[in-house]
């Protein structure tokens, strides 16, 4: 125990630095994922085959290959095609685009799960597409998709650990560096595991549950 406290005293600061980078990566990737999921999820439901097809290709492509492959492709190959990102941006872009594809399926599924009668009522009230989506369908769909989004955000948080492989100095990267200089592997990777666990279990899950409750109340369901 004494030994571990000394270890934390020596390297705690670097774990904090790494955690901050992981939090930045997670937030930026989450914003991108939500945007991508909303866009492609709605496109997936379009009546026009070109729009629907584009969305299907995007979703199947990003779900059919690994996040790690996509990350390396964006970082090493995209510059050859003329699009160059620095490593920090490449990191959250890859994670966001990948998890966004999974999110798009959640968006599609939850919109489809809104009862048919709601659509018919909108028609009967002569609502426009835009108004119908914004006022009736999407608020109900959001309530349905929030629980799986909680899981997806934890997957996203875990996904950001991979950006350390293109040398973004996140939590995982710091753990690896400290392990490399001290050879205290149990302490280094153990601390990283615990921090990831706390972020998922103490921040993301309760946060999402609170948001679910808030939205449920707003919708008059609780």
């Amino acid at each position: 125990m004494q030994h571990y406290l000394e270890y934390l005293q020596a390297y705690g600061g670097r774990f904090v630095d790494g955690t901050l980078v992981t939090i930045q990566q997670t937030l930026l990737a989450a914003l991108l994922a939500i945007f991508v999921a909303a866009l492609f999820g709605m496109m997936r439901l379009s009546e026009k085959w070109l729009i629907r097809g584009t969305s299907i290709v995007y979703i199947e492509f990003f779900r059919g290959t690994s996040l790690l492959v996509q990350l390396y492709w964006i970082f090493f190959v995209l510059p050859l095609l003329g699009v160059t990102f620095d490593k920090f941006t490449a990191g959250f872009v890859a994670v966001g685009l990948n998890l966004g594809a999974y999110g798009a399926e959640l968006v599609r599924g939850s919109i489809e799960a809104v009862p048919k009668g709601q659509y018919e009522a909108c028609h009967a009230l002569n609502m426009s597409y835009y108004k119908r989506m914004r006022r009736i369908i999407l608020p109900q769909a959001l309530l349905l998709m929030l629980p799986p989004w909680g899981n997806l955000l934890i997957e996203l948080l875990k996904g950001t650990a991979l950006v350390s492989l293109i040398s973004v100095t996140d939590l995982m990267f710091e753990a690896k560096q400290i392990n490399g200089t001290t050879y205290l592997s149990a302490e280094s990777f153990g601390t990283a595991l615990i921090i990831y666990y706390l972020m998922a279990r103490v921040v993301v899950s309760p946060g999402m549950r609170a948001f679910e409750r808030y939205w449920g109340k707003k919708m008059g369901r609780i």
Partner: peptide, 23 residues
């Protein structure tokens, strides 16, 4: 189960690979 599910696989891989030799 919760712990394994909410921590990154890549960190777990490193943990198992590097912690063994320490002991």
């Amino acid at each position: 189960v919760e712990f394994i599910r909410s921590t990154p696989l890549v960190v777990q891989i490193f943990f198992i690979f590097y912690v063994g030799p320490q002991f």
